[in-house]
Design a protein around this nucleic acid. Structure first.
Lengths: 227, 227
DNA sequence: ATTTATTTTAATCAAACGATTAAATAAATT
DNA sequence: AATTTATTTAATCGTTTGATTAAAATAAAT
């Protein structure tokens, strides 16, 4: 029991192999990938506590025992999904905010549009991350170095330069990032509530968010010069 | 078994008594109030699925059976907590945004400051509402008429007046509300993540949010005139 | 003082759930 | 072809968990 598979997939916390190696090795049609995709879907939608391993197995079209054979436990499978999700979610930012070719303003536009597109493809991710990280923040977040991604970025440098050159007013970078990310992400997090409040249909609401790709950069620039 | 208590506390969905009547009747020290407060704490912190009725009973300092005696089931207790939470959370807005004495700008300031204070007292509420409502939005939200509270408010009228009088540019009210609420609420929802990203301590982070009471109105006004 | 009603508890049930086992089948290796 | 290794399944184990029961303790009423 738990032979070679065990070494590859379950020792990721201890062995030298990175999660990314495992990702590359697995084909989309392979059983472990099927299970992981199913787990992703179910966890994202319901969260850890409300997800049943039987539901994940059914979603993957396999037996419950197989899930435990590959991933040993619900929790280990969850951690794997969480790492992949965080990596995807913050990795895609990294490309945009570290592009040396684009200006500060261009990055703001690309960031807003790119992120809204990303969340449109997987709208459950923001609420999933926020609510699951609440339980054990440091344990889950230490696996993906988000802080470094954000603070040592070209984007951050360009922000500081713009302040020094007097192009934008001097202001707290954390406030700026909170506002920027909040404007992008909040409509997705608050969607169920906001739909009821606004009385909009799914399509109307999505159209509104689509508009925000253009609007958020305008708003953010106005905010930056309002102090 | 399930005698007079039953009629009062468990038939709230069917009988003529409102939830508010029950609230008034119960003293803070009474057993049912102790249970409800404990349920509130646990549900707010962990969400429905991760909360155990045994934990709630322990938090309340009573036996598990007593919880079911008073509230009949975990789910009924949860619905009660959710209604109270929504009522409190959106009721407190109502006072501010329907005050006929204050101007549009004053309401923005009071709304921001008042809401940040409210969430400071109960910081788990925003994420609790967002994540729990995702599962059955209409069922939970139909119990509190939020849409009416927002759209038929003095605040909404004053917004429309300001647009007509050319004081602010013509813009989508839904966008405006999403931005406004998002700026207030998102730092609390994203707190675990934002703390790690920023590297700030609890106190530093709270101080930052405190600043936002003054900053958000400034930002919002800048945004409103940026189209 | 006795009955009646209410409040509280310990013990336990039944279903749900995560995990395991052992056995069967398929694939790969020698 | 024989043997080992990998994949898949049915059956089931042990806990957890929501809910119930019956009875004890307390309070209220007659």
């Amino acid at each position: 029991m738990f032979k070679s598979k065990d070494k590859i997939y379950l020792s990721c916390n201890f062995c030298k192999r990175s999660v990314m190696d495992n990702l590359k090795n697995a084909t989309d049609s392979s059983t472990e990938e099927k299970i992981k995709n199913a787990a992703r879907t179910v966890f994202h939608k319901k969260g850890f506590a409300a997800s049943r391993t039987r539901d994940i197995a059914e979603e993957a079209g396999i037996n419950l025992a197989l899930l435990n054979y590959y991933f040993r436990s619900k929790e280990k499978l969850f951690v794997l999904v969480m790492i992949e999700t965080l990596t995807e979610f913050f990795g895609s930012v990294s490309v945009i905010i570290n592009n040396p070719e684009t200006s500060f303003e261009e990055k703001i536009e690309q960031f807003a549009a790119g992120y809204i597109d990303l969340i449109f493809r997987e709208p459950d991710i923001p609420l999933f991350i926020m609510s699951e990280i609440r339980n054990n923040p440091e344990q889950l977040l230490q696996k993906v170095d988000i802080r470094n991604t954000v603070f040592n970025s070209v984007f951050t440098c360009q922000f500081n330069e713009a302040v020094q050159q007097g192009k934008i007013k001097d202001q707290n970078f954390i406030h700026f990032m909170m506002n920027f990310i909040g404007l992008i992400v909040f409509p997705f997090i608050g969607k169920p509530l906001l739909k009821v409040i606004s009385g909009l249909t799914e399509e109307q609401f999505n159209a509104l968010i689509e508009e925000r790709k253009k609007l958020i950069p305008v708003w953010i620039k106005a905010m930056m010069n309002s102090h």
